[in-house]
Write a protein that binds this DNA or RNA. Sequence first.
DNA 1: AAACCGGGGCC
DNA 2: GGCCCAGGTTT
Length: 322
Amino acid sequence: MLPWRATDGGRPDPYHVWLSEIMLQQTVVATVIPYFGRFIERYPTVADLAAAPDDDVLGLWAGLGYYARARNLIACARAVVAAGGFPATIDGLRALPGIGAYTAAAIGAIAFDLPVVPIDGNVERVAARIGAVTTALPAGKAEIARVAAWLGEHAAARAAPGDFAQALFDLGASLCAPRSPSCLVCPWRGDCAGHAAGIAATLPRKAARAPRPVRFGTVFLLRDADGAIGLRRRPPKGLLGGMMELPGTVWEAAMPDAPPPMRAAWRDAGVVVHVFTHFELRLRVMAAEVAALPEGLVAAAVDAPLPSLMRKAVSMGLGGLD
DNA sequence: AAACCGGGGCC
DNA sequence: GGCCCAGGTTT
């Protein structure tokens, strides 16, 4: 049972629903579960989260990715507390930071039983197959939305929109899987035009993606006499916004010049390869031990909260030092 | 409408 | 190596 779902008979906690939905944006359930548990443990209520220092929240989010979500999470928590609770309307939810059309519908249906069908990747796939929508995404979105709205007219959806939405998620995550759907045991098989046409497994169709460019850079891992490492903070917006990082070069299509931040016995610790949404990064890691960190760097523990890219770089830079 | 924004697991 | 994911914000 997913930890944010209501136990039998009870209504789900809107705070739990909201937090889980934000974490689940473009992130798979298995990845979210441990983060969700740590957040609920440290911030039992939305008021606890709203009162927390930004850095505590960013640190607890480190490794989950899409860090704008964490910044919006903080802003949203504070707005909700200021308003006295979560709004129970789609428009009210949609107006909050980090909540778009999908998330407003998901929270509305699951937490407040509003009669809407949230269209995520799972529901998009289920609807495209049931309606045999062959128009490729994103152009096919409107057609898929009409099929989803038709699903919402189903008696089960009218009776319990929240349960129906989660049942659609579960269907998309299990029987109606992306690659080899289990149509023969699907409860919707008789109503599925995609299955009838023999094209269910090929839906939804998607426009071809642009190739992912490669960028290169170098980072420098400095370890002082106390075993602390030198970090700096990234700009508040943009890629890995507001997170800590190892000092280094810009990331460019050709390897930039890489003057070290100080004189030291630098060694080449290897190359970290990390794939972002829109480019692949090959980051050379240079490492050295020094008596004291240079001006401009913050001393941090080797297990300080970091984005996964920087965690990999630190790990590579520390390798073989002991 | 298109670009930007992480990370991990699966085939 | 490509594809997928319980998308939102900015331009």
